[in-house]
Write a protein that binds this DNA or RNA. Sequence first.
DNA 1: ATACTTGCAAATTTTTTGCACTGGA
DNA 2: TCCAGTGCAAAAAATTTGCAAGTAT
Lengths: 134, 134
Amino acid sequence: MPDSSGLRMTQQRRVILEELAAVTSHPTADELYQSVRRRLPRISLGTVYRNLEIMAQKGEIQRIGAAGTQRRFDATTAVHYHIRCTTCGRVADLSLKPIIRLEQEAANISGFAISGHWVEFQGVCPECQDPAQA
Amino acid sequence: MPDSSGLRMTQQRRVILEELAAVTSHPTADELYQSVRRRLPRISLGTVYRNLEIMAQKGEIQRIGAAGTQRRFDATTAVHYHIRCTTCGRVADLSLKPIIRLEQEAANISGFAISGHWVEFQGVCPECQDPAQA
DNA sequence: ATACTTGCAAATTTTTTGCACTGGA
DNA sequence: TCCAGTGCAAAAAATTTGCAAGTAT
């Protein structure tokens, strides 16, 4: 049978992807819904959830670890590192060269077929370290 | 002074901590509730949530990234690495020597006061790679 | 045309909270 | 004592799902 991926590039899917790619803030499904809504007022939150889930499954986007309570997403599937402020909860990207070698090591130890990895640093951001300055 | 935290070691807190320390499965609040319940039948789910939250805040336990939908916890606060099967969702510990040097680098780049970091590898576990064998 | 997708709404699941009572230090 | 902590229950938040209608391919 033809067409194994079976995914269609609908307007909703495209806009969700575009909005996600446009920010570096690792939005939650609801945050994304709010911004997508400005372009597609009739889109539903359910559709956003469904698409994020499907695309994450297909590896087109990345589901990142819980910074807080909610699930967050990232359009950059390439391995990259995050840093989270334990005080204000902000999550930022960190331009640190990923250590791919680690994946080989992890594969050897675990027997898993490694597809990627991600790293999150925890700490207190400059603003929260010095409240007066903020 | 000895204890500025103001935390009391209640029976509930102690049992939650013990049960969490007894497993390596990084349970969700509800899973933990189920096991704590066997020892303290009258404990409430709310209490489990409250304690996990408080202890995570105090750094006595670790809140780990969303492996799936729910928040998960880990009694080991030392930096250690996880590996998650993208097929079955299982999360396991990985005995890989943590690269503390990374924290220094991250601190230099970001200006954050780094308190820790964690790494999660994604991949397919041996069982899921070969279903017939499992 | 076919069957993947959507919007809507209801249902679930997960987490938080108010409150009066309890128990640890 | 006295206030952090608890159980309970209700509320809020987050996520999923059934279904009829819409639309990429």
